[in-house]
Design a protein around this nucleic acid. Structure first.
Lengths: 218, 218
DNA sequence: GTCTATATATTGATAGAC
DNA sequence: GTCTATCAATATATAGAC
């Protein structure tokens, strides 16, 4: 599945991407990247004048990967626009599960670690967040008739990102899927209450009628 | 307000606490801590065998500070238990505002930066999260009659932490209070919908009747 | 408990041949 | 574009006098 690029530049980006994700930016040494990517120092600095430039390339790649690598596999599997959103959340659950809650959201990690000190990186992190929110926003627009008209779609999309990031953080810290699942349960309940009232407060919960993606406990 | 302890050990902890908060753990050098605390290398290593031991002391201090420094000023100002929760969130908003969205939650920062590699630190971070959740849980218990009986209070308290951490992350990354305020607005809406139905789906929104803390935009 | 001096490893980055 | 050798700075940590 995951093939190593013969292209040196791409191999450096891919390697840095993985190490930054698993260890963080500061904790990852240039020497470690070089060793793992099987590249020599001279080559790295031929492509990237500084370590930060490599970071920026990683963040650019995340932007490019958002649709083809993250969203498309889910979008193609799930039709219902609201279930798309929860399918996206389930993707982060799978990542947590597969890595014993060691890997979280790479953008969130870097946002808190280096968002303040590196201005260009911060902007790219913000771009990545925006792309994610926009994708959710489109889902909400596609479910327009099921949401109360006075609900701000962009704000709700931002809320979904907020919940995902906070949930991943807690899951990693507790080393358990429970905080993540709990958060998704609460968000689902909120969506149920939102979609239940086409007119405000009157209809019964529609929870039982809706399809659910599989989120079996570990 | 903030006085510098004459006690060397405490001065080191306070200084490290601030630098870890503003720059992160890895980005903060021991030399920088020594200079700012006006302490010599020998003294630091007399108290703390390694830099990580200093980190652990910082995290222990956060645990001790939770009630007296973070909660008590808010608890004493606000009576209503649900407004206490939103008052707590407003505390993080103030921190963001005062620091131009540079300072977030120190526990959240460290959770994502070093939660994976340092086992003891991770446990202390989890302890800190637990203390925070428990405090919110107590508020929810105190508002027991206003919440539907089938709502899991512990889960909802965890959700509040999730939202706070995710909201702070986005605010710092966007360098704007808007994502934070948006998240709080959504969470408020959720609480309104929860507290509106003592019996499920039937009562009108109680939003207009409730006191609100001041969350004027910047 | 605190001081100064210093050890040792690693950091990000560079030079210059090929 | 890639190679090896290496730089200068900084990292955490230690030694031993006071």
């Amino acid at each position: 599945m995951k093939l190593r690029p013969d292209n040196t530049r791409d191999r450096l980006i891919d390697t840095a991407m993985e190490l930054f994700h698993s260890q963080g930016y500061q904790a990852t040494g240039v020497a470690q990247i070089l060793k793992k990517a099987e590249v020599n120092s001279g080559s790295l600095y031929y492509f990237f004048p500084t370590k930060e430039d490599l970071l920026l390339a990683v963040l650019e790649k995340y932007k490019l990967m958002l649709h083809p690598a993250l969203l498309e596999p889910i979008w193609s599997r799930i039709d219902d626009p609201i279930e798309k959103v929860f399918g996206l959340l389930d993707g982060y659950r799978r990542l947590l599960m597969m890595t014993e809650c060691n890997y979280g959201c790479p953008i969130g990690n870097l946002a808190l670690e280096i968002g303040h000190s590196h201005a260009k990186a911060r902007q790219l992190l913000a771009d990545n967040f925006k792309g994610w929110r926009d994708a959710v926003h489109e889902c909400l627009n596609a479910a327009d008739d099921r949401l109360p008209s006075d609900v701000d779609r962009a704000q709700l999309a931002s809320f979904v990102l907020t919940v995902m990031e906070g949930a991943v953080m807690q899951a990693r810290t507790e080393r358990s899927l429970k905080p993540f699942d709990d958060a998704v349960t609460q968000l689902r309940d909120y969506f149920d209450r939102l979609t239940a009232d086409g007119t405000q407060w009157g209809a019964p919960a529609a929870s039982e009628l809706k399809p659910r993606i599989n989120t079996d406990k570990e």
